[in-house]
Amino acid sequence: MFRKILSPFARLFDLQARTHYRTERHSMALTFGIILAAGVGGFVEIAPLFTIDDTVEAAPDMRVYTPLEQAGRDIYVREGCYACHSQMIRTLQDEVDRYGPYSLAVESKYDHPMLWGSKRTGPDLARLGQKYSDDWHLRHLIDPRAVVPESVMPQYAFLLDKTLDTESLPARLAALRAVGVPYTDAQIDNAAQDARGQARPFTEGADGVIDRYGDDTNIRVFSAQQDRVSEMDALIAYLQILGGLTDAAERTQPAGAQDARAAVAGPAPQPTGTE
């Protein structure tokens, strides 16, 4: 019985074994065989991600990172924060309960590279923006254990002393545009001064940031230092925008339904099943 079921497979394999036996005498045949066998999978899985439309959701309100936030992102990459922090809330109930609406593909549409991460030594940061104050981030980055005694996160106090390199920002934004982020010429040309302006609300530079990136941009002294724009300013500016480029996730997901229900129903609401 078993043998019967097997026999077509066995014959197929015999054919393969014979083919292989001939192939293994020719190094180039082996080479092409390997390239072919190893080529299929990647192609089938990656290419359609560029062509199937609903891979990335539509989000008309999506904005790009400001130069200061992008500079902060570069520091996040440089320091290897992604080694401990994910930025990807999975479609699992406990993650939605803990971190908020699950992450959408569109939310990292301008992330070159993505920072989804593969390890959560620390908590997920995908929706961190505005969760804590600038001051808390500052203290936490200077010495995590001063605010969270159990923390195993490294100290990053030195960021406060390092003046942010803003001169390279136009070139950075230009490179990002080359890979598909829709920065305008004006945004690229003014990148350096916009970066400084965003962290110095009391200067005129701040106005340009509003013009080019919108009213909702966070314009503050992020690191409590008035005299210069430090790398700390940039990193905190980035942390405060995490999850804030678009509200597509909050808009499309039923999380928080309960609150809406309670507000509408007023006192003594009936526990309804679904939204």
Partner: peptide, 17 residues
């Protein structure tokens, strides 16, 4: 400094491929 040619979900898939 350089920026990955891919972004977001395509970048994630390429990276883990």
């Amino acid at each position: 400094k350089s920026y990955s040619a891919f972004a977001g979900v395509q970048d994630a898939m390429t990276q883990w491929w």
